[in-house]
Design a binder for these strands. Structure first.
Lengths: 130, 130, 130, 130
DNA sequence: GTGGTCTAGACCACA
DNA sequence: GTGGTCTAGACCACA
């Protein structure tokens, strides 16, 4: 797992770390039980403060993506979702709506939008879960 | 155009305004050339500070969604985009990627995800543009 | 809302703050929509660092107990629970089990334990919700 | 006495050991005078570091749950408590209060809470002590 | 004014 | 070694 931090990104650094871990888990690069690099290690390699990485890991733990155990390290959890289905669908729907709205304003045709959804989707399908 | 401001939303007020305008334009509720309600009018109706509305309008103009003609008001632009196609596609792809990542962690099956994309997409297609 | 911080408590400071807010909400001292004292204000009064209070508020927001809105303040949420019923019951059962185990080792009779449950329970019953 | 160590548990390993012993004693699985398995034996079976088990036993002794007789092993104590009654009640009350607070935020009705207390309590009553 | 992010550095509990 | 907590202080976005 190699982290890429972009300080000029509008996204905060700790969110970038979170999203990269979530992406790695979703694409199967990181599997349940895998150990994440230590906080101090990531901090050193990305030249980001330890506390910022710790914040990202804490956030990931709260989202049930990872498990942190003092003295042992942080590990990928085996996928339990805390939120209720209804709430999850609402969030997902909001993301899709925003996607279409942005697509419209970017003057990207529905066909192109569909193609993007297809193309990007293929990366995640190998890891299909009911 | 009636604005709904939800102070309990995690989204900031000015972004709520922005997103509502963009949504209205994308779904055809607002058409190019339509005049937006005046800032002070929106501020009065939503009981939100005028500066906040002004910030939203400024942001919308920056994104080329609207055009402000001093002394006349703000109008829906007829769809020009400042960003290069490549940059726009990158942003769109990021949104789709985030959608799949979130879907994975929410344990929503690819089939369901696709269904959401279809369902939400239909709302926009009736107002389709090339 | 007045906070009491005990530095020699085994519980961490930010957890003390969290628990006090949750207690106040559960007993009706704080009602949905009520505004919490500002982070800086709590920090000044308790002589605890601003970041520590901020951490408590962030945690409370993640637990859906409060809502924080930059520029406006933090407010008591109107009680939505993110966790699934099954998970919630598991946590609750664990707490009760620990309570009985501790009671046994403290040589407190089942009658006394029951009395404590009754007595403490009365504070919360006025705010009964289905 | 067979120990189940769950490394994925948020609870630290030594506390898991402690709690299991206390639970076993409270439910009568272990009776006063019973010998606990040797530290190195537990360490071997659970694949946990010997120091961690030793820490758990030390903590249990501090809480007067067990007694270690050097050269002979560790034995379940016959129920003496170091803390004053008043202090013990304070701790117990705190646990009950936390239970109700959590129940409130989990939107579990007082009736259900009471039912949980009843149900869990029955497991301990068969082994009731004054 | 409000909350959010980040740093640098200290200290602690746990394995 | 590991992660967690806390401080002091800076800077930012939002209302």
């Amino acid at each position: 797992m190699i982290f890429q931090v972009n300080l000029s990104d509008a996204k905060s650094v700790y969110r970038q770390i979170c999203d990269q871990v979530k992406y790695a888990v979703a694409t199967g690069v990181l599997a349940p039980g895998d150990r994440l690099p230590a906080i101090r290690e990531v901090a050193a390699r990305t030249r980001v403060n330890r506390n910022t990485i710790a914040k990202a890991y804490t956030e990931l733990e709260r989202e049930s993506v990872i498990l942190s155990r003092p003295g042992q390290g942080s590990f990928v959890a085996n996928g339990s979702t805390a939120l209720q289905k209804q709430q999850r669908m609402k969030i997902i729907e909001g993301m899709v709506r925003d996607f279409y709205v942005q697509g419209y304003h970017f003057q990207i045709s529905p066909e192109e939008l569909r193609a993007v959804v297809e193309r990007v989707g293929r990366k995640f399908e190998k890891e299909g879960q009911s």
